[in-house]
Amino acid sequence: MRSLYILFTERIMFVAATLLTVFSVALGALRMMNAIDVLYSVVLVSLAASVILWILYVLHRTHFFDLIDSIQFAAFSFLLFISLVAYNNPFGVREMWALFVIYLLVISFYQSQKMFLVWSGACFFAYGFIVFSELRMMLDVSTKEQMVILALYRASLMIGGMLLAFLVFSYSKKLKMSVQVQQAKKERKQLYRMVHALVPVVERKTQTSRDEIETMHVLMKSMLRALRSDVEEWELRMIVLLHYVSRIKWPDYFFDKEGKLTDFEYQMVKEHCFFAKEFLPDEPAYRRIIDALSFHHERVDGTGYPHCLTGDKIPLLSQVLGIAECYIALVSPRSYRGMVEAQDALSEIRLTQGTAFAEDVIEALAETISMGSAHNSHEQSLPSKVGLHPLKSG
C-alpha cells in the first residue's frame, strides 16, 4: 500500500501540471493573436514548469521515487525551474537573483548538511552562469569598470544570501536538536515513572526495601568513577531501578523457598535479565541500559548466562552491575546467615578474579569500599539469586 504522502503529492502535481498546461496554452493563443513579445518568455517558462510537473507526476505514478531520494529530486527540479525563470526573466525584474536566495532558504529548512552543501553549491553555479550570460550581453554597452562593479555586486548579493541561508540552516538544526533532546528527556522521565510505579509492588512481593535502589546507585556510581566510565546519570538510575523491579517476573513462592532451585525454576530466574529489553524501546539511546541488564550475570570465564560471554565481550556496565549485586547480597543478612563484613565480602569476591569478574572491576570495588562509598550497614533482606549463593551459582 502506497503512503498517503505520495498519493497526496501525486494529486497536487496532477492538478498543478494541468492548470499550468491550460495556462500555457491560453497564453500561447493570446500571444499568437496579439503578437505581444513579453508573452513569449512567459509562455516558455510556464511550459517548462508544466513539463517538469508532468515528469514528476509520471515518476511518482511509476514508483520511481521508491528507488531514489525524492527530496533530492525535488531540490533539483526546483533549482531547474527557478534557473529557467531567472534566465528568461519574462517579467523583466532586475533583482531576479532573489529567487536563488529563496531557494537557499527553502533547502536550509531540510536540516540536512549534505543536502545543503550540495544544492547550495549547485545554486551558486547556476546563479554564476546566469550572471555571466548577462555580463556577456552587456559587453558592447558597458565599460570594464562597470562590468567588474556589477559582477562584484551580484557576487556579494549571492554570497550574502548563502550566509543568510547558512545561518537559518544552523539555527533550525540547533532548534531541531534542542526539541529532540527535550522530547528524549520527557520520554525518559515517563519511562522512569512507569518503572518506579512498580517499586511498591516489588517491595511487597519480595519483602525487600527500596533502599537497595539507592545503595546500588551509590556503589555503582563510585565504581564507574574509579573506572573512568562515561555513563550518564539517567542511564545509571534507570539501570538500578530496572534491576530492582525485574524481580517482579519471579513467582511469589521463590522468595520463601529454601534450598536449591530446580532446573525449571533456575531458567525462570534467568528471565529477569531480559526485563529491560522487553520494557524499553529498541533505540540507540537505551542500548547500554539493555545490554547492562541482559549480561550482568555473565562471567569472564564463559560460565555465566544467558549467552556465556567471555572476557572483554561482557560490557563494563554489566560487570559493574553484577559485582555490585554480589557485594550487596553478601553484606546483607539472610535467614540462613548473618551479615558479612565488608572486607570479608571483598575477600570472597577476590577469589572469583578471572572466573566471575575481571581484575579492574574488583579493584574498583575495593577502592569504593576503602573510600566508604559502599553501603554495608543497612539491615534489609535483599535477594541475590533466589535460593543460591551469589558467587557459586553459574
Rank of each mutant, 00 (worst) to 15 (best):
E298F: 02
Y153S: 12
A98H: 10
T368R: 02
I248E: 01
H375T: 09
R61A: 15
L152I: 10
Q190C: 11
R299F: 15
P90I: 03
A324C: 12
L67C: 08
L316G: 00
H389Q: 08
T368G: 00
M158C: 12
L139C: 09
K385E: 05
W119S: 00
W250C: 07
R210T: 07
A366S: 14
Y57Q: 01
F109S: 08
F8S: 14
M138K: 15
D291A: 07
D140F: 12
G161E: 04
M238F: 03
M268H: 09
H196T: 05
V42N: 02
H297S: 08
G160T: 11
Q146P: 03
W234P: 04
E212D: 11
L293K: 01
P333V: 14
I68V: 15
F357H: 10
H60F: 09
C273L: 12
S120P: 00
F132L: 14
R136M: 12
L219N: 02
L293R: 01
H307G: 04
Y286W: 13
E359C: 12
E233P: 07
M238H: 03
L321G: 01
I102A: 14
V118F: 03
V231K: 04
G160A: 09
I289D: 01
F264W: 11
L388C: 14
S83I: 07
A122I: 01
E271D: 09
V38W: 13
F255A: 12
Q72I: 03
Q343W: 10
A345M: 13
H243N: 08
P90D: 03
Q190A: 15
G128I: 02
P390Q: 02
K176I: 11
V195H: 05
L104G: 01
C308Y: 15
F78V: 12
F8T: 15
E341C: 09
F73Y: 08
A86W: 00
N88I: 09
C123W: 01
S347P: 00
V51P: 02
Q319R: 07
P383M: 02
S393I: 07
L241S: 02
S120R: 00
K144W: 12
Y57R: 02
S142L: 08
M177K: 08
V141E: 04
K221S: 07
M115F: 11
L139Y: 14
F129Q: 14
M13E: 07
Y286E: 10
A364P: 01
V131T: 11
L351I: 12
V38I: 13
L104D: 00
F275R: 01
E367T: 10
G121P: 04
R2A: 07
K205M: 05
L365I: 12
N376I: 00
E325Q: 14
H375L: 08
T21L: 07
S222N: 02
T215Q: 14
M371W: 07
A324G: 08
V231L: 09
K186R: 11
R154M: 05
V231H: 03
